[in-house]
């Protein structure tokens, strides 16, 4: 882990570094999501799913040694020093940090990236009659999706896919387009290694990954404008709901107007769990109605409870984010 790449996640105000770690690795709890909301880092949920605690801690330690950050061991918080803020600003100016990426809108970037690579590889190899090759996707889920997508694609749609791919890439900046196309490969086009690509773009290996997410995010936003039936659009899976399964169910029942007591009565889960589902919705759903009388009644029943306190906190945070 290149330590300075964590700088954009911190600020001159103290932040709970463990909550940020759990956010980056995709641990979906009310506490972590609240922290993401408070620090405006929710878009980076699940950004580094494989980041180990050891590597993260070592990177934090390095930031401290470089005088970029200070750690408060007692409350496990980190805040940037003046020097750290300067380095952070310089890093952001270099333009590779994925400021536009949003997990809840773009989906899991690693899966989306594999979908792009594999779909290009499959069509290219098919056109060049290469039948035996190693798929450029490690996730069985992606392999299955693209296999089914390919079987649905006739000759005309393949050509349409190539045209849509080319047209979408042409809408990116020249640097973004170069990065994207030089990351593709197939049996007829070997491509270059990430190391060679990073050297050519004057980036480190870790910076290249971030630059790639930035490009992918820009690319996906354009893909989302295609109709559902477009072959390129069909390659990607975009989030249809941002809540977890349990939270979706609870939130749907809540929105349908069902009384809370009935929701609790008909559920196999504890009331505290169902209340956490509502809190998750309060954090993530843009249209969550904080002023709804039923919600106020629920809070009023026990205003000092964990739920009541958290909900108030979330409402204030969301208000703050909107004001920003």
């Amino acid at each position: 882990m290149q330590a300075n790449l964590l700088l954009p996640l911190f600020s001159k105000q103290a932040r709970r570094y463990q909550a940020i770690y759990y956010l980056l690795t995709g641990k979906r709890t009310v506490s972590n999501l609240s922290a993401g909301l408070a620090y405006q880092l929710l878009p980076y949920f699940h950004f580094y799913p494989k980041l180990s605690q050891d590597d993260y801690q070592a990177a934090l330690q390095q930031l401290v040694e470089q005088h970029y950050a200070k750690i408060q061991a007692t409350d496990k918080t980190i805040q940037l020093t003046s020097l750290g803020q300067v380095v952070q600003a310089r890093l952001l100016q270099r333009g590779f940090w994925p400021t536009t990426y949003n997990y809840w809108q773009d989906g899991d970037w690693q899966l989306q990236w594999e979908r792009l690579l594999l779909s290009v590889q499959v069509i290219s190899n098919y056109q060049h009659h290469h039948a035996h090759y190693t798929p450029l996707a490690t996730q069985p889920l992606v392999q299955n999706e693209i296999r089914h997508w390919f079987y649905r694609c006739g000759r005309t749609q393949q050509q349409q896919f190539v045209e849509e791919l080319s047209a979408t890439t042409a809408q990116l900046t020249p640097n973004q387009a170069n990065l994207l196309v030089n990351s593709l490969r197939s049996s007829s086009y070997p491509g270059v290694s990430d190391f060679q690509l990073s050297l050519s773009l004057s980036l480190t290996a870790s910076e290249l990954i971030l630059a790639r997410v930035t490009v992918l995010s820009a690319f996906l936003r354009k893909v989302q404008q295609f109709p559902q039936s477009a072959p390129l659009r069909q390659v990607f899976q975009f989030p249809t709901t941002i809540l977890s399964l349990g939270s979706t169910r609870t939130y749907e029942l809540w929105r349908s107007g069902q009384p809370w007591s009935e929701i609790v009565q008909h559920s196999y889960q504890k009331e505290s769990t169902l209340l956490e589902h509502l809190l998750e919705a309060a954090i993530l759903m843009p249209d969550f109605d904080f002023d709804q009388p039923r919600l106020q009644q629920l809070v009023a029943a026990n205003p000092e409870s964990y739920f009541g306190q958290r909900l108030l906190e979330i409402q204030e945070l969301r208000q703050g984010v909107q004001d920003d």
Binding site: S124, A170, V181, Y189
Partner: peptide, 24 residues
């Protein structure tokens, strides 16, 4: 040395049926 290819060059190597030049 490694020279990165332009999108048009990459499409040429990847695909047999190339997109219209105007779009690349």
């Amino acid at each position: 040395t490694v020279n990165l290819l332009t999108p048009t060059q990459v499409w040429t190597q990847l695909f047999v049926n190339l997109p219209d030049k105007s779009s690349s």
